[in-house]
Design a binder for these strands. Structure first.
Length: 530
RNA sequence: GUCCGGUUCGUCUAGGGGUUAGGACACCGCCCUUUCACGGCGGCAACACGGGUUCAAAUCCCGUACCGGAUACCA
């Protein structure tokens, strides 16, 4: 039997980080087994479901690269089938009509209300004490015919237990006395979650249900429904939860946008890096390797490697440097600086484009960015004979763009950095980091005249000499000695003027890549001093 | 309350009877260097607690504590 798994989010908001991981694990499992990964939108709660949310889920899955293999199933489209199933169970005496008037929950804190009510039961509540459980068929039928509203509840047997072998948690068992006669159909005729899930999973021929640990008790209820329906249940595997730093379940409501996948896409994370990080939340291949391509994940993934303990997703709301999990930030940076340049360029292009910094010259007609890879090795400053200037790409050209990206990516964390930290490489209109100005310029007031003077020196020196790292170094060194100051003072002052920031690649490379013309302009500029 | 689950460095984790308890992130130090968030080297830092089984327990068993999840005419 070929494996069929599904990711079944409810469309009540953006795609959640925890849900995304569940989707990922389902996907990996399916791919590894040569099976299908399906998507079902659980929109039976009409009041809370929105199309907007459905779009956002689809978009998020698309971004992270988890496309469903078959058409998306909308649970609400199957409501008639769910009702038919409930009717069948009713007819067979496996379910009964409950005429108890619907209790309207105070919607403020439903969770708390439920909890309080459960606690009030003192754990000794008889789950079978429903007055309508054993009502006669005639009585039930006539009341229904008279138009009295009713819910349909599953008639859970008096004694026995549900059990299953969980793919992660092992053998699970629960006494019937712990499970109440769950409602299958609301009094307004709407099917409820557990019934809908079971019906749809049967219909979709799902073989393995992989979902969060918060569904463990649902699984017992669902097995009861499978049994009543006379269908063999699928395999189940529950995933440990992802917790917030406080130790609570990561939730949209209390943790906000930090749990939304779109937050990471918008913040300049690479889908591959995010996916890689997520895979490591609650799963390990049992080796020290941490960087995995999607193919490698598919190959290595196993439910045996999934943990039973929950993981904490770290973040500090008020710390810009650690606004999200620091390992995630590291991993994104790791991808940016080590992935094949070929693969990175299109992302940089998109980032520059959205920041209005992209220029078509960076990608001439007929040249795909991916072609760049073969030429970059030659463009690496280290590999190039220092005295040879001829291979310095023209400012603003395609080769220049490729080389700049390769040069500046090493200290970047997100794609956003290319347009923020790296802005000065692509535009004349860039800001000066006040900290850098203070530390590298104002601390040495002489620089205000020295740097324009250095520009003059460059102008004359490089009128006939090639503007290369080696030659630049000679000139700057001579200049700093002449001024009786450390080389670093000149270099860092120039860095601040040329790039607006205090960090970056070797300053000699920066001079060279910025080009003589712009170097002169920026060294002479008084903008940063004001 | 009851049921279920969990507990190895701050975090993600490896290890499942004999290990100097390993790696990664973060942090700290040193080196490289014109600065730096790159790179190199090093450091700090963990088996929740109590019993038991055993020659030997982080590892197996029991209990305690703590944490989490579930509990609905939500999903």
């Amino acid at each position: 039997m070929t494996v069929r798994v599904r990711f079944a989010p409810s469309p009540t908001g953006y795609l959640h980080v925890g849900a995304t991981r569940a989707a990922l694990f389902n996907y990996l499992y399916a791919r590894q087994k040569g099976g299908k990964f399906l998507l079902r939108i659980e929109d039976t709660d009409l009041a809370r479901s929105t199309d907007e949310s459905t779009r956002s889920i689809l978009e998020g899955l698309g971004w992270i690269g988890l496309q469903p293999d078959e058409e998306v199933v909308f649970q609400s489209n199957n409501a008639d089938k769910h009702r038919a199933a409930a009717k069948k169970l009713l007819d067979e005496g496996k379910a009964y009509r409950d005429f108890t008037p619907k209790a309207v929950p105070s919607d403020a804190n439903v969770k708390d209300t439920i909890k309080d009510r459960a606690r009030a039961g003192q754990g000794t509540r008889n789950m079978r004490d429903n007055a309508y459980r054993n009502i006669s068929n005639e009585d039930s039928d006539s009341r229904a015919a008279a138009g009295e509203p009713f819910a349909i509840r599953l008639k859970v047997p008096e004694t026995g237990k549900t059990s299953f072998e969980d793919g992660v948690f092992g053998f699970q068992e629960r006494d019937y006395s712990e499970t109440e006669d769950l409602v299958l159909l609301r009094s307004d005729g709407h099917p409820l979650y557990n019934l809908a899930v079971v019906c749809d999973d049967i219909e979709m021929e799902i073989t393995d249900v992989i979902r969060g640990q918060d569904h463990l008790t649902n699984t017992h209820k669902q097995i009861l429904i499978y049994e009543a329906l006379g269908v063999t249940p699928p395999n189940f595997a529950h995933l440990p939860l992802i917790l917030a730093p406080g130790g609570k379940k990561l939730s949209k409501r209390i943790h906000g946008e930090i749990v939304s996948l779109t937050t990471y896409r918008d913040a300049g994370f690479l889908a591959a890096a995010f996916r890689n990080f997520l895979a490591l939340m609650g799963w390990s291949a049992g080796e020290e390797k941490e960087i995995y391509s999607l193919d490698e994940l598919v190959e290595k993934f196993s439910l045996d490697g999934v943990h039973r303990s929950s993981a904490i997703f770290n973040y500090e709301p008020n710390n810009p440097k650690r606004w999200t999990d620091d390992k995630l930030i590291w991993m994104n940076a790791e991808y940016i600086r080590t992935m094949p340049l070929t693969n990175l360029l299109p992302f940089v292009k998109e980032e520059l484009r959205s920041a209005k910094l992209w220029r078509e010259e960076y990608q001439p007609e007929g040249r795909a960015l991916s072609e760049a890879a073969t030429s970059t090795a030659d463009l690496r400053p280290d590999d190039r004979p220092a005295a040879v200037a001829i291979d310095l790409p023209e400012y603003g050209s395609y080769d220049w763009f490729v080389r700049v990206v390769d040069l500046i990516r090493h200290r970047f964390f997100t794609l956003k950095d290319f347009s923020l930290q790296g802005r000065a490489y692509f535009s004349e209109d860039y800001d000066f980091d006040p900290v850098a100005v203070e530390k590298n310029l104002k601390k040495f007031p002489d620089l205000q005249t020295w740097l324009p003077e250095l520009a003059g020196r460059f102008e004359s020196e490089f009128a006939s000499t090639p503007y290369t790292e080696e030659n630049i170094e000679t000139v700057v060194k001579a200049f700093s000695e002449e001024k009786g100051t450390r080389l670093g003072v000149i270099m860092n002052g120039a860095r601040t003027l040329l790039t607006g920031v205090a960090v970056g690649p070797s300053m000699l490379s920066v001079f060279e890549i910025i080009g003589l013309e712009r170097t002169l302009m920026r060294l002479k500029s008084q903008l940063a001093w004001n």
